[in-house]
Design a protein around this nucleic acid. Structure first.
Length: 947
RNA sequence: GCCGAAAUGGUGGAAUGGUAGACACGAGGGACUUAAAAUCCCUUGGCCAUAACGGCUGUGCGGGUUCGAGUCCCGCUUUCGGUACCA
């Protein structure tokens, strides 16, 4: 009986569905384990072999945990809102929902063939109203909250309003866009609109003015990669930097908690480091500078307070409000021209083209330490969004200031002993301070840093600044608030309407606010986002429902927000929804949340390091502050699966002919390499007939072969359609079966490593399964392995496997596990006969990797339950004990021969035996024995020195 | 520039500081077969040597620690990721 994987896999996939094998319910008697994959965006291209890599790895772990008795949650769903579906809709007019659902069906079909243990009853789709109900709900929760810096958590905005009414901003400790100063009287005197605008300064979800790439012709905001050379990629229209009112999330308020949380979770060091850098905590000092001949003053932020004595000029960011304030009348024209020039350059251009530009404002700032007047410049190398948007420039010890100073001929004062600043700045934070103050200069203040190390100088300056009220110690974060709105159609609508320009929340009992139908997915002629095309998009306050736009009267019926939410909105809390996906009254019930708590193992790519994985952690923290999510960090352990690269094949066409020459002969001709579809190549040998049929122009192709074969060249490239190197998992399943695919994907190498997909090696894994089949069954299909007693040898072999696989699965070293299976099978095969017990254990160990064949064998072994409910075998050291130990004898570290000893031989006995062994004499000749090192069970090293 | 990861045969990759190259692919040779497929056996880092045993060398480069280093330390080179005027 042959190993008929097609029949076996079909049979078990059906049975799993019928028996609801993977359906999971909360069970207080069992310990939970939550495995999660980053859910996919269902693109039209379908899955390639790279996608399932992580799914297989997590599936193995989920199945393993279940065999160990855990109640395992392993759900799957779709991140269904997104740009490609919308782009397709714009081109074809087809509703994105239709294409999205088609793609989801295709994904499901592909996933089902691989035999995952997903509980499909818990599937979520971000575009499903029952799902985005809770995305909208969370948005409203954030809108109704502010972040209390003292309590370090989100609080209802009502508390802040109460505070303002009673004390104004006095004693208020809330994370805000700016530091506002208001008295209670001022607040209470505000009208509704003013109050609403003011509260935006503190709300966690808020309307804010942010800089965006605005394309007036297209009427939309563009992402940086949609803009090249200041014009839009699509259409070539000019793009300007513009401040726009956008919904934002106050992610920055959580900077410190996002940073602290990293120490509590088991993520790879590099990923945590990436997030740390992204958050970018920097401890520094804010120092106030007075403007000369004026009562104006402004604040700068620096991490190098020790360089106060080396300041030679000041720089403002072009977008800073200070520019207008500090520019003198006679410099206004020049500054305005410069600002205009900067405005035209996109942020991207500023990054790529780093030419030094800037202009003098005409004003001077007085250095509070030296009393010197430093000119105030404007330059785009200073960013408005970080610190205070203004810096003190110390050209001697900051490379950017140095470049600027050299370009405009500004003075450079070195402050570190021995630092040579004639060619470049000295940026290192090492050395002894000098020139602070400079010798011979009359001291302006009674303060000196000379002779200190930089560290000491920074600390001393901080102390001085604070005690003399010249500024304050300040921690800054690089992390910015997230822009949360998009001028797109295919996304979650905001549950917001505008009453006299004041945003109002749609009542929570009216959620979800459904995405309206539109007939065009492009922005309207007036530049409104696509939702402006909806005819039924107004809110009737009395009826509490969506009504036609024509009914807008601005008394009871009002326009609804036209923006939609960005991609990360739906993916920020989906792991909570899986816990309780059908709940109509809450994102997740308290009970389900208390049981599943958080994701124990999260598997996905590193590309989400600074996006999803930050937003999701932020989102969960807000929910946690209100008790909706009981654990602060949502993802305890994170594994990053590597990218699967493509392995492209090439054929070599001799120039100006239709003749193709085999790889090893191609050097002798003038050839053009051409990508060829890897699916008509096997082991780098081209199927010539298939190639001729591939494209009409190759039908008459001729070939120069080597050894009767056409050998293709190859290269490792990204897996993509245009390189014809996309390998589809369905094809592999069709040819080799899902179990082989699963085994091979794991065998390729460590899960975390990026590696090329090379179908060439898959035979080995398929062969292993065939061998296993023939090992278990004879030609008639009878089970061969039915000895009632296991031999010592068998037990040793299987327990070696149990030990190895258990350890490997825990460490995600699946590739070495696969090898261990192969070795064990070979050993068992050589023993000719095998007991039922040993085969059973083998099958259970294999079940997480190759569930279909495992089920089939499990059934053949006489079980009427599925192998998923078996028990993971327990490793017993007893069986691995050796009768004798083999030691490698080495001389000065060079291994020479082997000797056998009883297990209980002591070191002295071993040393004596080795030295007396006649073989040793040969290696010891002319040497003197120094000492002997015995490494238990491994090696004996005789240390010698020349006699 | 900065941060991170890596570098081992023809290929993918194994090696708690202890015989480097497990396992698999590919390649070569052989068995079975009318033949092919499938299957099985042998060889397979390099160099030298042989009837046979064997010897030398070898984990990107240069140093170091150690009885012993692919592994640890110092200094480079290269590759791949991430990030970018963050004061």
């Amino acid at each position: 009986m042959e190993y008929n994987f097609k029949e076996i896999e079909k049979k078990w996939q059906q049975r799993w569905v019928e028996q609801k094998t993977y359906h999971v319910v909360e069970d207080e008697n069992k310990q939970k384990f939550y495995v999660l994959n980053m859910f996919p965006y269902p693109s039209g291209a379908g899955l390639h072999v790279g996608h399932p890599l992580g799914y297989i790895a997590s599936d193995i772990y989920a199945r393993y945990k279940r065999l160990q008795g855990f109640n395992v949650l392993n759900p799957m769903g779709y991140d269904a809102y997104g740009l490609p579906a919308e782009q397709y809709a714009i081109q074809t007019g087809q509703h994105p929902e239709i294409t999205t659902f088609q793609n989801i069906d295709h994904y499901r079909e592909q996933l089902d063939k691989i035999g995952f243990c997903f509980d499909w009853d818990r599937e979520v789709r971000t575009c499903d109203p029952d799902y985005y109900h809770w995305t909208q709900w969370a948005f409203q929760l954030m809108y109704e909250s502010y972040y209390d810096n003292d309590l370090r958590k989100a609080q209802p905005i009502g508390q802040l309003i109460k505070h303002l009414e009673e004390k104004g901003t006095e004693g208020l400790s809330a994370a805000g866009t700016e530091e506002l100063k208001l008295t209670a009287e001022e607040w209470n005197a505000m009208d509704e609109k003013q109050k609403s605008d003011t509260l935006m300064n503190w709300r966690i979800a808020f309307l804010g003015e942010t800089m965006v790439n605005w394309c007036p012709e297209l009427g939309t905001v563009l992402a940086n990669d949609e803009v090249v050379d200041g014009v839009s990629v699509r259409g070539g229209f000019p793009v300007v930097q513009k401040k726009m009112r956008q919904w934002c999330l106050r992610v920055s308020a959580y900077s410190q908690r996002l940073l602290d949380g990293l120490d509590t979770i088991q993520w790879t060091g590099s990923l945590r480091e990436t997030q740390r850098n992204w958050i970018g905590r920097s401890e520094g000092t804010e120092v106030e500078f007075n403007v000369a001949d004026s009562d104006k003053h402004f604040t700068i932020f620096t991490t190098r307070a020790d360089t106060m004595f080396g300041v030679t000029f000041m720089v403002l960011a072009p977008e800073s409000e200070l520019v207008a304030e500090l520019t003198t009348a006679d410099h206004k024209a020049e500054v305005d021209a410069y600002l205009e020039q900067v405005k035209k350059r996109t942020e991207r251009e500023r990054m790529i083209d780093k030419k030094v530009t800037g202009v003098f404002t005409g004003s001077y700032a007085i250095n509070p330490f030296t009393g010197e007047k430093n000119p105030i410049w404007v330059s785009d190398y200073v960013l408005a969004g970080y610190g205070t948007g203004a810096i003190m420039a110390v050209p001697a010890h900051d490379s950017r200031d140095y470049t600027f100073a050299k370009h405009f001929g500004l003075p450079i004062i070195p402050l570190i002993e021995g630092a040579d600043v004639s060619e470049e700045s000295y940026d290192a934070k090492e050395g002894i301070v000098m020139n602070s103050p400079r010798p011979g200069v009359t001291p302006y203040i009674d303060f000196s840093l000379n002779g200190m190390t930089i560290k000491e100088a920074i600390a001393a300056t901080k102390e001085y600044v604070e005690s003399h009220k010249l500024g304050r110690v300040k921690v800054n974060y690089r992390l910015r608030d997230a822009i949360f709105s998009r001028q797109r159609y295919w996304g979650e609508p905001f549950p917001v309407y505008y009453k006299n320009g004041i945003p109002q929340m749609i009542p929570s009992e009216c959620l979800p606010l459904l995405l309206p139908e539109v007939d065009k997915f492009l922005p309207t002629e007036t530049g409104e986002p696509p939702l402006g095309n909806a005819t039924k998009w107004a809110w009737d306050e009395q009826k509490k429902q969506v009504v036609e736009n024509s009914k807008i009267d601005n008394k009871t019926v009002f326009p609804i927000e036209l923006y939609t939410m960005p991609g990360f909105a739906g993916s920020s809390a989906y792991y909570l929804r899986y816990m309780d996906p059908h709940n109509k009254t809450a994102l997740v019930s308290e009970k389900a949340d208390a049981y599943w708590k958080c994701v124990d193992l999260y598997v996905g790519g590193t590309e989400h390091a600074t996006g999803h994985l930050i937003y999701s952690r932020f989102w969960n923290k807000v929910l946690h502050d209100y008790g909706y999510s009981c654990v602060e960090e949502p993802f305890q352990k994170l594994i990053n699966q590597g990218m699967i690269q493509g392995r492209s094949n090439f054929v070599y066409r001799i120039k100006d002919t239709n003749t193709f020459v085999s790889y090893n002969l191609s050097k002798e001709y003038d050839v053009t390499p051409i990508h060829v579809d890897v699916n008509i190549v096997q082991n780098d040998v081209l199927y010539v007939e298939a190639f001729k049929a591939w494209r009409p122009e190759y039908a008459t192709a001729e070939f120069i072969l080597e050894d009767g074969k056409y050998i293709c060249g190859w290269a490792i490239e990204k897996m993509s359609k245009s390189m014809f190197n996309v390998v589809n998992p369905d094809m592999i399943v069709e040819r080799f079966g899902a179990d082989t695919l699963r085994l091979y994907e794991m065998f390729l190498g460590p899960v975390e490593a990026s590696k090329p997909w090379d179908t060439n090696g898959i035979d080995g894994c398929h062969r292993f399964l065939k061998k296993l089949w023939m090992f278990a069954f004879d030609k008639e299909g009878n089970l061969r392995c039915n000895n009632p007693e296991s031999t010592k040898e068998e037990l040793k072999s299987i327990h070696k496997l149990i030990k190895k696989v258990t350890l490997d699965v825990e460490n995600f070293s699946y590739n070495t596990s696969v090898s261990a299976f192969m070795i064990c099978l070979n050993e068992l095969n050589q023993m000719k006969s095998t007991s039922k017990e040993v085969l059973e254990q083998f099958v259970v160990l294999l079940a997480p990797f190759c569930p279909h064949i495992a089920e089939e064998l499990w059934e053949a072994l006489g079980h009427n339950t599925t192998v998923c409910d078996a028990q993971w075998p327990v490793f017993n050291e007893e069986y691995l004990k050796e009768d004798a130990i083999n030691l490698t004898i080495s001389f000065n570290g060079k291994a020479r021969f082997q000797m056998s000893f009883p297990v209980d031989a002591d070191n002295a006995t071993i040393e004596k035996a080795v030295l007396e062994n006649p073989q040793s004499a040969k290696y010891m000749e002319g040497f003197q024995h120094v000492k002997t090192i015995v490494v238990p069970k491994k090696i004996v090293n005789i240390v010698l020195k020349k006699a």
